[in-house]
Amino acid sequence: MIGGGVVRLAKDLIQYNEMLRALARREVASMYVGSFLGFFWTFIQPAVMILVFWFVFSVGFKAKPMNDVPFVVWLTAAMAPWFVFSAIVTSATTVILQYAHLIKKTVFPSQILVVVKILSNLVGHGAFVVLLIVLIFCNGMPFSVYYLQSLYYLFCLLVLASGIGWLISSVNVYARDVSQLVPVIVQVGFWATPIFWDLSIMPESIRFWLKLNPFCYIVQGYRDSFIYFVPFWQHGLETLYFWTVAFLFLLTGGWVFAKLKPQFADVL
């Protein structure tokens, strides 16, 4: 049964939660081990990126505010989810290979690895969101409880990323082409998603097609939560569509992973 893979994965996450957290902590720590600034790098990287955006677009190009919102704030609100999503997807692609020594030599639940990547990347996302809020504050924009709605969209993002992660991480074990292909798709995805541009500038006729990209929903959602304060239930149809796609990915990913997993140790 196709859904069985996902149910079992969910059970494993509970069973192995201690190992999961230990591995995620290790992932985060290994990014900074041996560096002097350590954890500060989590903030430095997005901060510099935002600074560059601000300088290039607001100072350099004199980009007009988007619907009365400073361009840099408007951009950062969309960059935040994209940044973590692309990080999860790219790192999940090779995660099975990265942990090959454990999969081959110990009894190891490889299905939790994608979640390890998700958890470890969430740290950077937290930093990004904190900077976004600082930026909003600096621009004198209002605070709102709608900020909390971003957690819902984050959840959407994680479900989508898990499905995709399980799918590509397991297929990549057999066809390493995936690890070459994924960065390309991520690159294209960045420009195909309304991050640097707004849906409203597109002609009505192609807007429908652009909304088929499930990540469009998440990016719009982050802006709704931090800038426009629009609740998600106002996008009923989009919500329904997103969850359909996300569940399709989750089911396919879980099924493919469960199907390929028994042979991992043979191939690695």
């Binding site: 190992m19 591995l23 290790r26 720590a29 454990l102 030599k105």
Partner: peptide
């Protein structure tokens, strides 16, 4: 099956023992 399969060279012995044990 293999000694030190879960060891990461950058981390201390103590940290590696904890992680291996968790695994």
């Amino acid at each position: 099956l293999e000694l030190g399969a879960g060891f990461n060279p950058e981390f201390t012995g103590r940290e590696n023992v904890y992680l291996s044990a968790t695994i």
